[in-house]
């Protein structure tokens, strides 16, 4: 990792070249202990290639966000292991995981989650300041450039409250990119945006993956958004299911509804 600006990351081989896996999850399971134990994610095997744009889809409560938190090292699996750039993260303590997140991962959430007391530029520079790899001038320069690349020139010194929803989400993306991460993880990044802003955010993420060779993992149930991805992972009841299952389920549910049956449960596939 270095301070190289994002465009230089573009691999000359392009998207068609065989990709090395950046992130490998093996039989990831996350169970919430309690009086009634809940399994959020069960034995998920995931591989994310460098520069790949992957969308995780699933019905609400399917565990797609939980899977994203596991892949983003925000949560720790009950069992299974996760390799980031070939490094097994199982034994890492909380601080070590935080360091990895800081240097290699970037997050975008459904709600922009910016610090309201700080300007857009200050929000973007925050991860850089915490990492301390760049000096003050370089941080500022990089922050301004990222914001400009995302079409936010002129808004650098505005507070989040002075920006529109789409602009805030772009600032959040800029912040996710601050430390030049290997992977950007997005949890329903367009969930709270109108159609136009959604398209904008989708295009930006698409561009980050293809143009900058950065892996993108996004959780969504927006089909239009999902269509921009290289690959879709579908998850139902905490388990990864073969692609297309959801369409089958939805069709079946629609058919059942049309037939006037009162059964709300999905038929077994």
């Amino acid at each position: 990792m270095n301070a190289a600006p994002p465009p230089e990351r573009a691999s000359p081989a392009g998207r068609e070249a065989p990709r090395s896996s950046v992130l490998v999850a093996e039989r990831l399971t996350r169970r919430l202990e309690g009086e009634v134990p809940v399994t959020l994610v069960e034995e998920a095997d995931v591989q994310i290639g460098r520069g790949e744009f992957v969308v995780i889809r699933g019905p609400s409560g399917s565990g797609k966000s939980s899977l994203l938190y596991l892949l983003g090292l925000l949560d720790r699996p009950t069992s299974g292991r996760l390799l980031l750039e070939g490094e097994d993260t199982s034994g890492f303590d909380e601080d070590r995981l935080a360091d990895v997140r800081l240097a290699k991962l970037g997050f975008v959430f459904q709600f922009h989650f910016l610090l309201n007391e700080f300007s857009a530029l200050d929000n973007v520079m925050m991860p850089m300041r915490r990492l301390g790899r760049l000096d003050a001038d370089a941080r500022r320069e990089r922050g301004l450039r990222i914001l400009r690349d995302l079409g936010l020139a002129g808004h650098e010194h505005k507070r989040p409250s002075q920006l529109s929803g789409g602009q805030r989400q772009r600032v959040a993306i800029a912040r996710a990119l601050a430390n030049d991460p290997v992977i950007v993880l997005a949890d329903e990044p367009t969930g709270a945006l109108d159609t136009k802003s959604s398209g904008n955010v989708r295009d930006i993420l698409r561009e980050l993956a293809s143009g900058q060779d950065r892996s993108i993992i996004a959780v969504t149930h927006d089909l239009h958004f999902a269509s921009a991805a290289d690959r879709q992972i579908e998850i139902v009841d905490g388990r990864i299911v073969p692609t297309g299952t959801m369409a089958t389920l939805e069709a079946a549910a629609a058919a059942a509804k049309a037939a006037g049956t009162q059964t709300g449960a999905a038929p077994a596939s």
Partner: peptide, 16 residues
């Protein structure tokens, strides 16, 4: 609390 969650997800330690 929300800001703390942001900072920690960003990579801040509990110590920070």
């Amino acid at each position: 609390t929300r800001d703390i969650a942001i900072l920690k997800s960003m990579g801040f330690h509990a110590r920070d």
